[in-house]
Design a protein around this nucleic acid. Structure first.
Lengths: 211, 211
DNA sequence: CGTCAACAGTTGCTTAACCGACACCTGATG
DNA sequence: CATCAGGTGTCGGTTAAGCAACTGTTGACG
């Protein structure tokens, strides 16, 4: 499975990381951190599809068999990595209590845009196949965040047009997709202008009845 | 053993690190590295005798019991650490083949001086007791190096006045002691001047008969 | 004086990481 | 065509790390 195959395409939304090990164990956290660091290192030096599991584990100082105790393959690792990094970036910018305001929406947009720019800016030019596969993990995280916002009660449920899942889907894809295009299209506008353009579509449910 | 006791004084030349574990195991190298990093961190923040084993292991993300699998106590760790750092600093400056020339001697002096200055410069002001105990590890390493130089044949044995051990003892103490005083006395001269002053005493055996 | 908190070491058991070896696949090379 | 090198994924046995709990010491405080 050195070349991207059909199976790769099926793994876009599939985590692929093993849950047989206890993620709270310090050894587990350490090992995953080492693998992630090795991956970022290598992605600064060569294209993702040139990188072998061998390379990653050697660089990390981790046994190859240990890798497979944590991840199904290198795609599972990179997906995990992107989700992890992005979640961290989000939580760093977000206030502890994020109510569902226009300001919060703007934060989501800005954080996403900054992340896509900085994360993929550090990589060697990415092959066409792996880029979307990685970036799309950002949408997964956004979906979870929007969903959590609502179910944790920080959301004015009275103004919801549909189910929380529908709202999360719509908003996450809107933010991710538009930001992805923006980053991919050469960052032609400022981040603020990007946000200004998107905000009206995100806050339709906020000031009254449904769509 | 929170306060330095009598036993501490007996441990100056005693390694104190356990050899029951295999030093080539990646996990062992990793754990020791983590403990060393934690120690340097903490020594930049507080005095050495304020630091508890607890502090070190917490900072390192290593279990306290694991600490004791590697080192007898925090003194054993700091000794190991100093030896390790200094050896690394030496090997970085030394040419692969170090014959016993005047130039090599100068390198030893300069490397030692630089190390003492940089290593202890990063620490919070050290208490009077722990400073010599740590620094003296430098002499231990120097002794081993001088000894290795001779037994590995890079030394003109014909010019030796005494046994290799005697030579190693004399030279290591000469270099360490003088450099220690230099570093401790406020670095009043340049490193080169320091070396110029010491070199004649170190090369008496090099140009002819014994002492 | 008692006691209370914090640290030092130690122990038995559990869990994760290491290691070597294996079968398998793939692409390059003679 | 054969085969050889290098990567993948898996397995069983060994070793180190984690964890919780324990005793013992020391210093502070009422």
């Amino acid at each position: 499975m050195n070349q991207p195959t059909r199976t790769e395409l099926c793994r876009v939304n599939n985590a692929g990381d093993k849950m047989s090990v206890n993620p709270d164990d310090p050894r587990v956290r350490r090992t995953r951190q080492l693998l992630q660091n090795a991956l970022t290192d290598l992605m600064g030096e060569m294209s993702f599809n040139q990188i072998s599991v061998q390379d990653i584990t050697t660089r990390a100082g981790v046994n190859r068999a240990t890798f497979y105790a944590h991840f199904e393959d290198k795609y599972a690792l990179v997906n995990y990595h992107v989700r992890h990094m992005f979640l961290e970036a989000l939580q760093q910018r977000m206030p502890a209590k994020h109510e569902f305001s226009q300001a919060t929406m703007r934060l989501f947009i800005v954080a996403t845009a900054e992340f896509l720019r900085s994360f993929f800016g550090r990589c060697t030019p990415l092959d066409q196949l792996s880029y979307p596969q990685m970036a799309i993990q950002v949408q997964v995280v956004l979906y979870e965040m929007f969903l959590a916002c609502q179910t944790q009660g920080h959301f004015p449920t009275a103004t919801l047009s549909k189910s929380p899942e529908t709202t999360a889907t719509a908003l996450s894809w809107l933010v991710f997709g538009a930001t992805f295009d923006w980053a991919h299209g050469g960052l032609k506008t400022s981040v603020d202008e990007l946000a200004d353009g998107l905000l009206p579509y995100m806050t339709v449910g906020l000031h009254g009845a449904g769509v």
